[in-house]
């Protein structure tokens, strides 16, 4: 057993925090981009695309993230496609995120009353023009709070990447504990790290929810 001071532990955790952050941000941005594309397809008038996206969303919402991670890491490797733990985690979290934000954003678009579409239509706007100039501006206001709220799920989801051997925050804590065996201190600090990342985000989401709740006035 090695002796670690509290500062050593914290130092190691904070360095590992970078990877958790990097993974979260990439997954969130990547998931947002894929999610935007999916939302566009989901709200298109092409039935096949709608169904395809619906299936995709159901699949990722209806299965555990850990299973998705295993499927991409171990499953693909069995097929001869070897991904690093980092790549596999990034892909899995991106797909996971895209499915959830797609669902949030679709709901936000559908929450815009039909009267808005009709008013735009009788003014001569096409579907795309209506989406762009009338619907999205309002849908974003509905979507922003749940989207920020969901980012917390992404951060917590990155902890699962430790299982396939990606050295982010949780795996670092586990390794530290194997060496130092100070579970209470180490995992306590680990929890604190996640809390410091997540709590401001959920507070911010709640603040946005309150502030944007007043429909139609700014």
């Amino acid at each position: 057993m090695i002796d670690f001071t509290l500062w050593d532990i914290l130092g190691h955790l904070l360095r590992a925090l970078r990877w958790t952050l990097a993974l979260s941000i990439i997954a969130f941005v990547g998931g947002g981009l894929v999610g935007a594309l999916l939302t566009w397809w989901r709200t298109s008038q092409i039935k096949a695309l709608q169904l395809l996206v619906r299936g995709y969303v159901e699949l990722f919402q209806g299965t555990p993230l850990l299973m998705q991670l295993f499927l991409i890491f171990f499953g693909l490797s069995a097929l001869g496609i070897n991904l690093s733990a980092w790549t596999a985690a990034t892909i899995a979290l991106t797909l996971f995120t895209s499915a959830f934000v797609c669902d949030i954003w679709r709901g936000s678009i559908e929450a815009i009353p039909a009267g808005q579409w009709q008013a735009a239509r009788v003014l001569g706007m096409s579907r795309l023009q209506t989406l762009r100039h009338v619907v999205l501006g309002q849908a974003v206001r509905i979507a922003i709070a749940p989207t920020v709220g969901f980012s917390v799920q992404v951060i917590k989801g990155t902890a699962l990447a430790s299982v396939i051997g990606f050295t982010e925050l949780t795996r670092t804590a586990t390794m530290l504990n194997n060496a130092a065996f100070m579970p209470f201190t180490i995992f306590g600090l680990l929890a604190l790290c996640y809390f410091c990342l997540c709590y401001p985000l959920s507070r911010y989401a709640r603040y946005l929810e309150k502030r944007l709740d007043v429909h139609g006035s700014r």
Partner: peptide
Amino acid sequence: FQSFNLFPHR
């Protein structure tokens, strides 16, 4: 329309 349907964010 009966319900005005102004674009509330503009």
